[in-house]
């Protein structure tokens, strides 16, 4: 389903966003990155920043204490 995956559980803001950004930049436009984020600060901040960078969040699933996002690289 996704071309790449990054598990950011336990990674603090804004390092989690920077890691997501770097991963996305290494991918090709249109490819899908799976991002796993903790609830709380990470889920409050990282999706906003991903959007502001121009990428698209195509799927969000809550799984207990964390979120599984699918992000399409711009």
């Amino acid at each position: 389903m996704s071309d790449s995956s990054i598990d950011l559980r336990g990674v603090m803001c804004p390092i989690n966003f920077v890691k997501t950004k770097l991963k996305l930049e290494a991918m090709n436009p249109g490819e899908i990155l799976e991002v796993i984020l903790d609830s709380g600060d990470p889920i409050q901040n990282v999706p906003k920043s991903i959007k502001e960078e121009g990428h698209k969040i195509v799927e969000v699933k809550k799984e207990g204490d964390f979120f599984r996002l699918k992000v399409q690289r711009s």
Binding site: S39, I43, Q44, P47, K48, I57, E59, V60, K61, K62, F67
Partner: peptide, 9 residues
């Protein structure tokens, strides 16, 4: 899509 991010945000 009912993703619930808004309520978390």
């Amino acid at each position: 899509t009912g993703c619930t991010i808004c309520s978390e945000a």
